[in-house]
Each structure stands twice: as structure tokens, then as C-alpha cells.
Amino acid sequence: MKFGKFDLDELLALMDRHHVSELSLRRHGQAIEIKKSASAAQHSAAPQPRPAAGEKSVAEPDDPETQPTLLSPEPLEIIGEKFYQVQAPLVGTFYRAPAPDASPFIEVGDQVKVGDTLCIIEAMKNMNEIQIDVNGIIREICVKNGSLVEFGQVLFKIEETSPDS
């Protein structure tokens, strides 16, 4: 999997090199959290100089003596994007409301259920309503009103909820 232009392998290598045990990155459309367990950190630990003043401090490896010995087969716990992403199924102009002077379909924090209309994408003068496939709460609106959206572009981030909540 890729995060921006980095492969997962490259991120892990970076973490190893700088002895980082937890990495959390965010960029538009993507978020990733990587947690290395103690045993993995232990494995890749190497003696390293103290950071000089002014340098960014790097997390130091834990003292192997005090760590519980666990040898989990999967030393990495990767938490991908937390939210459900609504992606544009077509190319067009994104509108938050059904008409220029009408109020938007949804706002951040609104609760939505399957089938609710979230926005309109105008394509070739046709208004296409985009409906949601899950139940949840709107956490982020990722596109500005009136801007062009491309195929696959993330429009909204929804925190999924169970149907009866």
C-alpha cells in the first residue's frame, strides 16, 4: 500500500532508521498510523547518539531489560484510514446544495443514513445526486463548493455508525 509517494516498506524503513515506534501521518484523503510493538523495536534497536540540542528528538528504543518478552507473529499494527470515504463516481462540478440559493444537503456533524443525498455533481449539465451507502456522521467535507471533482476523489469522510444508533 502507498501513502502519498511512499511505499509502506519505505515508511517502515524510515521508522527503523530513526527508531520511531509510533508514526501517525495525515494528508488530504489519507491517514495512516503505524505502531511497532516492543519486540520489533527491540529487534531493530542499535546504539545511537543522543540528539544534539536543536535537533528533532527521536524516540529512543526502550531498555530491553524492562520490556516484557512477547513475540507476537505480527509485530506491526497498522491502522488505516479511520473514516469511510465517499469517493466521486464521476467527473464534474461539486455542489453542496440542490440550488444556488438553497441550503446545503448536509453539514459536518450531521447524521446520515443509507440513501441520503450528500451532494450534487454536475456533469454535462446534468445534476447527479450522490447518495451514501452507509449510516454515520459527517466528519469532514473534503471539497469546496463549486470546484471540479475527478473520478475517485474523496468528497466526504463519514464516521460509520451501526444502523440502530
Partner: peptide, 11 residues
């Protein structure tokens, strides 16, 4: 000039 597919909503 346009027709929308009633199944997949493609214009």
C-alpha cells in the same frame, strides 16, 4: 440531448 440510465444512473 441526454438520457440517464435507470439502472446505473450514467448519463
Amino acid at each position: 440531448l441526454f438520457v440517464t440510465c435507470s439502472q446505473c444512473h450514467t448519463t
